[in-house]
Design a protein around this nucleic acid. Structure first.
Length: 247
DNA sequence: ACCTATGTTGATAC
DNA sequence: GGTATCAACATAGG
């Protein structure tokens, strides 16, 4: 269930694999490794070492010593495991000269592994973006505010749960047209988003949010006890408090 | 048993 | 161009 906080933990896992020589690559899953044909990633990475682990939003990539970057995405259910015995749903793996390995473990097969990942369409990281850039990229258009937060091309890293948690904390309705927010509201939203993201990283994931446990049919606002509203916004199930989230 | 789902991409439509 | 919807992936949980 990865959003930005889970992706950050995965990045830290990749760091444990830095500096080790890659002696074999399992890139046989042509769906997870699309558009690469089986063997392409292996040919590009065998004999190399990972030198640095990076992240923007939910997108991960590792640099190599002279070879292409390796891009990884956890999809909806993936995680990165280091030095664990293989299981049937390891969709991509690197094997190292020291006998260890790095695997993308993902039952649902929604993760990705590619070489030379392209991040042109990925916006700045939600926890790092400056106030000016945030105002400019988020506070425009007629699209619902929540749909804008979920758009990884505008800012990256916010998933469905983090979006609901952040909007509840910021007391802003997910249905609000993004372009109607004042500069003050946008600045406040950015501060709340950074705080919610930091909390989630520290506590170990987005499911630890205050609001998240109340996201259920018939659930009530933990602040004012009003019954929550439920709708599909930005293609995802959305819960919010109609009484204290300003529309 | 049936319905829903935390993510991304690409296709399609207005 | 901006916005909206859907299918695809395979499994888990209510």
């Amino acid at each position: 269930m990865p959003e930005l906080p889970e992706a950050e933990r995965a990045r830290q896992q990749i760091e444990r694999a830095l500096g080790r020589e890659i002696v074999a690559v399992d890139d046989a899953d042509s769906y997870v490794c699309r558009p690469h044909a089986p063997g392409e990633i292996a040919a590009a990475l065998t004999g190399r070492r990972l030198t640095q682990a990076n992240r923007r939003g939910k997108f991960l990539w590792a640099e190599t010593d002279g070879g292409p970057d390796l891009g990884l995405h956890l999809g909806m259910a993936g995680r990165i495991v280091i030095d664990e015995e293989p299981v049937g749903w390891d969709r991509f793996a690197l094997e190292f000269a020291d006998g260890g390995r790095l695997a993308l473990r993902d039952k649902r097969r929604l993760g990705r592994a590619v070489i030379e990942p392209d991040f042109d369409h990925v916006g700045p990281d939600a926890a790092e973006v400056s106030r000016a850039i945030f105002r400019e990229r988020v506070g425009r258009g007629a699209i619902a505010l929540k749909a804008r937060l979920l758009d990884q091309g505008s800012i990256s890293g916010v998933g469905n749960l983090l979006a609901d948690e952040t909007l509840w904390r910021a007391r802003l309705s997910p249905t609000r047209p993004a372009g109607t927010l004042s500069e003050e509201e946008l600045d406040h939203l950015r501060r709340v988003l950074r705080a919610a993201t930091r909390d989630a990283i520290r506590k170990g994931g987005v499911h630890t949010g205050t609001f998240i446990g109340h996201r259920t049919r018939g659930g009530h606002c933990p602040r004012c006890k009003s019954e929550l509203e439920r709708a599909t916004i930005g293609g995802r199930t959305t819960f919010w408090c109609p009484a204290c989230q300003k529309s």
